[in-house]
Design a binder for these strands. Structure first.
Length: 422
RNA sequence: GGAGAGGUGGCCGAGUGGUUGAAGGCGCCGGUCUCGAAAACCGGUAUACCGCUUGCGGUAUCCAGGGUUCGAAUCCCUGCCUCUCCGCCA
């Protein structure tokens, strides 16, 4: 959430940002009103508590001197009830305020272009060129079937649609890519975590999956756990409710996890083959940085992800997302899209975002400035580096031979132990 | 799953109803001493919110939430977590 002080002091700026995202700024005034009410209640309640404390000490002093305190005690009897009533109303107001604040989105950065739809996203970089193939390239789902790399049908039998079973060289290729991605992150200064694949409600709330995106997660209701939709959730929560030393920054964490998404409502060619799954593998990067360095960190993370695509020799483009296509919590975001030869379209394989202090405030992750002084919110960022299935799809399609084999890119040889599939 | 013990400040640890935000120790910061350092000694050392405000005042916080009381770290209830023993188990 945003800092309530920003709403108090610069409501117009907040409203303008919300409008750029295409959201309704009405909540700003609601929040400001609740905040004023809250502060009035705090002052009333604290005045009473102050008196209560003073009188209680008087009672203690009188009893020590064996004096009669009956009349003073009787006088205070009603005050406790007054305090309780005020505290209850304060609690309600604070809950309402938090609810409203959670409904106010983060504001887009000044460098983010205006726009409402994906067409307004701004391509800012291209790498490579569409591969020249002098035969009709097959889509990856045909290659997967003929080479026996992934068994979708048996996955459906075991669990359901969208839960693939990787088989033989398909499994080995998946494992090779995960290791390759993690090693690259490590070389870029990241510390690897292998986190829980289920999280509790506090964690899911901290990163913003709850309360509104509950329907996108798989739930274990008996224990109140959620299957992770992305490693962002357990990894960003690693330092929840902690105060870091400034010298610890930047914190750079990476993690491989399977990701579980219910993804209701998708259909058609978008879900064929590896395009969209309920369970898929991904390596995620998370940064906790000093506020003055988050925009640089965003560029660094984007570069880290792009380098992987370059090493794999995959043609890709980078988009700067427009204000209307930003997520609720994001200030600035890049998407990386890889070219699918078999499908003749771009596939999103990475999304790199800066949340500034919005997520940190919700997670309560702060740092103590080096010279001492009050703790301040860190800035958080995350990015995929990378999501596996569409990489596998693009890779199979781009490196296929007329005979229906697939040449493994050199960068992966030491991981796969084979150079050709088929 | 069964039985027991326990959760106090950055850390260790005292405290079982009344000037306790919390003894003592460690750590850390500043100072004295020293050519310098160590030792010793002195002082300081939480977070959040509210208010006036370059400092101060108020309130809350001794796992969390409720309760008893004029007053709770201290008593009662619930939850969470940790440890020990037994059982089960990759």
């Amino acid at each position: 959430m945003l800092d309530i002080r920003l709403l108090r002091e610069q409501p117009d700026l907040v409203r303008a940002g919300i409008l750029r995202k295409g959201e309704d700024p009405a909540n700003v005034d609601t929040a400001i009103g609740l905040d004023a009410r809250r502060r009035a209640l705090v002052q009333q309640g604290e005045a009473l508590k102050s008196r209560k404390n003073t009188v209680s000490q008087q009672v203690a002093a009188m009893k020590a001197k064996k004096e009669d305190a009956t009349s003073v005690i009787a006088e205070m009897r009603g005050v406790a009830d007054e305090i309780k009533a005020l505290d209850e109303e304060l609690k309600r107001v604070e809950e309402d305020l938090r609810t409203v604040m959670l409904q106010i989105p983060n504001l887009p950065d000044a460098s983010v272009p205006d726009g409402r739809t994906p067409e307004d996203n701004k391509p800012i970089a291209h790498w490579g060129a569409p591969p020249v193939i002098d035969f009709t390239p097959k889509p990856h789902w045909d290659l997967i079937k003929s080479l026996g790399l992934i068994d979708f049908d048996r996955g459906t039998k075991i669990t359901g649609a969208g839960f693939p079973v990787y088989v033989g060289k398909g499994a080995k290729l998946e494992r090779a890519l995960i290791s390759f991605f993690l090693d690259h992150a490590e070389a870029s200064g990241y510390t690897e975590l292998l986190p829980p694949l289920m999280v509790n409600a506090d964690s899911a709330t901290g990163t913003g999956q709850l309360p509104d995106k509950e329907g996108q997660m798989y739930v274990a209701p008996l224990d109140g756990f959620y299957m992770v939709p992305t490693a962002e959730v357990p990894v960003t929560n690693f330092y929840r409710d902690e105060i870091l030393g400034e010298e610890q920054l930047p914190v750079k964490l990476c993690a491989y996890t399977p990701c579980f998404r219910r993804e209701a409502g998708s259909y058609g060619k978008d879900v064929r083959g590896l395009n969209r799954l309920h369970q898929f593998d991904k390596v995620e990067l998370v940064n906790l940085v000093h506020p003055s360095r988050s925009m640089q960190a965003l560029e660094d993370m984007r570069a880290t992800a792009e380098q992987l695509l370059q090493k794999l020799g995959l043609h890709y483009r980078t988009l700067l997302m427009c204000a209307g296509d930003l997520g609720f919590t994001q200030v600035k975001k890049y998407d990386l899209e890889v070219w699918s030869v078999g499908q003749q379209r771009w596939l999103e394989v990475s999304s790199v975002s800066n949340f500034e202090s919005y997520q940190a405030r919700r997670l309560n992750i702060r740092y103590r400035p080096a010279g001492g002084g009050k703790p301040e919110m860190v800035h958080t960022l995350n990015g995929s580096s990378l999501a596996l299935p569409r990489i596998v799809a693009a890779l199979l399609e781009q490196y296929q031979t007329p005979e229906g084999k697939v040449i493994v890119p050199a960068a992966l040889h030491s991981y796969t132990g084979f150079e050709v599939i088929g």
